[in-house]
Nucleic acid binder design. Structure first.
Lengths: 144, 144
DNA sequence: ATATATGCAAACGATTTGCAACTCC
DNA sequence: GGAGTTGCAAATCGTTTGCATATAT
């Protein structure tokens, strides 16, 4: 992967922690700082929350990952696949996140922006509800 | 307004503070807790932040206002005009919020949810960018 | 060697809460 | 009078930061 090169070029050292976090993202599409901590602890990998936050911030700054704020809670991160924007279906039951892309919606947004003489930088479209499984169970666990 | 009746029926007392906050919402479409505190202070009205948060939470619970999380910062509230859902254009320069409604987008979202066997509860579509004025000035003040 | 990373604990900022005093119906 | 409300200060929770130490290149 040339991600590491990209980091090196920015004067960032490749450490075990950084590689481990990158590896996590290839297994888990959506992660937050605490989830990363938990996974590491379960693998007996020592790391502090502060370090996780610092690495996530650094990755975000170098456009390796993208930060989302789905609710009031923790920020959520995902790999920033170049130029592939997508939106999210977020399950309020289990917290699962489903991604989708819809070109028509993208275009409608640009139209709306134009009508308002608005220069679009980015956008987030989050649809909250219940996924198939939770629709049936209808547990009332809060989204996490 | 029958909002007060709605509150009374829910066993909620109508206090000066609550009326004042309701009044504020008819002047300002979008407010956050701190902004409310500031406005009250400028009018020499004594109120504590805790009370503001409690009132906002209570109003939200009774569907009088809606809570939005536009950025990482403070939560933003607006009157919940019954069944009139709308989305937002958010200026990253001056923080201005422009509302819009687009039926086509709404329908496309329902289609997408259906395809994913997802039961939609609600959604938020936020378009971030610069409004006409800020597009020209391009101040880099953070959105607030 | 030295610039960058890390851990720890303390600091932060928004929001919440316990509790005693207060106000509306 | 009693249920619901308020203010205050302390508590929470996610996240950030200062500083001294450790590590990558």
């Amino acid at each position: 992967m040339d991600l590491t090169k990209q980091l090196k070029d920015a004067g960032i050292k490749i450490t075990q922690h950084k590689l481990a976090i990158l590896a996590l993202f290839s297994e888990h599409k959506h992660l937050d700082a605490f989830k990363i901590l938990t996974i590491f602890q379960s693998k007996n990998i020592d790391i502090s929350l502060a370090t996780i936050y610092r690495i996530l911030a650094s990755f975000e700054e170098h456009n390796i990952i993208t930060k989302h704020n789905f609710g009031n809670e923790h920020a959520n991160y995902e790999l920033a696949v170049a130029n592939e924007h997508h939106d999210h279906l977020i399950c309020m039951g289990c917290g699962k996140v489903i991604e989708f892309v819809n070109q028509e919606i993208e275009e409608l947004q640009l139209q709306i922006a134009k009508q308002n003489q608005f220069e679009v930088h980015n956008h987030t479209l989050n649809i909250y509800g219940f996924c198939v499984e939770c629709k049936i169970l209808k547990t009332s666990k809060p989204i996490n």
